[in-house]
Simulated assay, not measured.
Amino acid sequence: MVAIADSTLEHATGQLTLTQFHALRVVSERTPVTMSRVAGELAMNPSTVTRACERLTSLDLLQKAPNPLNRRETLLAPTAKGRQLVGQVDEDRRRVLAGVLDRLDDDVRAAVLTAFADFARVATPDAL
């Protein structure tokens, strides 16, 4: 699974680290969001997230704006290009995973899908 995640990210863009992509995903899923919330979601040091977001901004994948409710905070949102990248990586991962599952015997595939469903049910962010 990690190899699939890494290869699809590398295929979509050789410019991003896994940390940068994770930050982009969090921002895409929780727009608008503050840097501190992204750091909390990723359980990372705020300075690391700030550097990752600066890189995403320089690549036109993320945009920043001052929070009108709190001038000390910066709000983050993905650009259209950023949303497209997240969507492309997700699509590529589904395609690769489907190809792997298609190579399994029917009974093994059914068991794997059941195991994935069980895993997804218990692997909530709160449980990690």
Results as ranks from 00 to 15, higher is better:
V86I: 12
T124V: 15
I4C: 10
S47A: 13
G99P: 04
T50D: 10
M44Y: 06
F116S: 04
R103N: 12
A12Q: 03
S58W: 03
A115C: 01
D118I: 00
N67H: 04
F119L: 13
T114D: 12
L18Y: 06
P66M: 08
V89L: 06
L104I: 05
Q15F: 08
R30W: 02
E54T: 04
L113D: 13
A98G: 10
Q84G: 12
A77G: 11
V100M: 13
D107H: 07
V27C: 05
R71D: 10
K64H: 04
L9T: 09
A65V: 12
G87I: 06
D90A: 11
R25P: 02
T74G: 04
A23P: 04
Q63N: 10
E41L: 02
R72P: 00
L18P: 01
R25M: 11
L59D: 11
L75T: 02
L75N: 00
G99S: 04
D118K: 11
S47H: 08
V86K: 04
E54L: 10
R30Y: 14
N70Q: 07
A80H: 12
V89E: 00
A98M: 04
A80L: 10
D92H: 08
D118E: 14
R121T: 14
L18Q: 14
P32N: 14
S58G: 07
M35L: 15
E41G: 03
T34V: 11
P78E: 01
P78D: 02
R55D: 08
A5Y: 11
A43G: 02
G99V: 04
Q20S: 09
F21A: 13
R103Y: 02
V112I: 12
D102H: 07
A123I: 05
T79E: 08
E73T: 09
R93K: 10
T124C: 03
E10G: 03
H22T: 01
K81A: 15
D6E: 15
Q88G: 00
P32A: 15
E29A: 15
S7C: 13
V2T: 07
A65D: 02
E41P: 00
A110I: 00
S47L: 08
T124S: 09
P32G: 09
A80V: 13
V26H: 02
L113A: 09
A123E: 06
L59S: 11
R109A: 10
A98Q: 08
G87R: 08
N70A: 09
V33N: 00
L97M: 13
T114H: 05
D60N: 11
A117S: 14
N70S: 14
F119C: 08
P66Q: 14
N67Y: 03
A3Y: 06
T50Q: 06
A43D: 15
E91T: 12
A3F: 07
M1K: 05
T79L: 01
L101V: 01
D92K: 08
L62N: 02
E10V: 06
V26M: 12
L59P: 02
D102L: 09
T34S: 15
H11E: 15
F21L: 12
